[in-house]
Amino acid sequence: MVRSDQDSGLLKRVQEYDPSALGEIYDCYAGRIYSYLYYRLGDAHLAEDLTGTVFVRMLEAIQGDRSWSVSFSGWLYRIAHNLVVDHYRRGRQDQCVVLDERVAAREHDPFQVVQERLDSERLRKAISRLTDEQALVVTLKFAEGLSNAEVAEIMGKTEGAIKSLQFRAMASLRRILEAEEQG
């Protein structure tokens, strides 16, 4: 297992349930996890709620002696990804279009705003149908704006592999969307 010394020290403190270590981890990663979840779900309240759940799951995993093998942030993103998959699998997503206040407040044609939101929902659902790795690479590249090198570090792959994975993810996404449009 590859862990940095700093992360190992943090893990040890978290295993002792040191509140300052828990707080440190949360403060460091909550914003990024929220951003990831919002990108995948498009619902601010749900993203807030699931952000908390990601960290509770992290604690449970550490309690059960299950933790990250490659990168801590990558591990958190995977927990978040699993929650998103669970969410879509259970069909709990709202049937109505959630209009973000900021989007709704824009001086846009309301019909256009709703249409844009519907397109976004379609895209989000299509991302949820990608493989775990494909969905992760798309989200990290587009939502987080990470470089290939950063994504490679999180996912434990080479930059070349990330470029290939990105291409396959985009191609799959296009096929899914086309199939939906035709079907």
Binding site: P19, Y34, G52
Partner: peptide, 24 residues
């Protein structure tokens, strides 16, 4: 799609408290 509004102030505080409570 990547235009992510920042979480409202204090929104992520609940998650932090939840984590600390679970830790306690």
């Amino acid at each position: 799609l990547a235009v992510t509004p920042p979480p409202p102030p204090g929104a992520l505080r609940a998650g932090r408290e939840r984590l600390l409570a679970a830790g306690r």
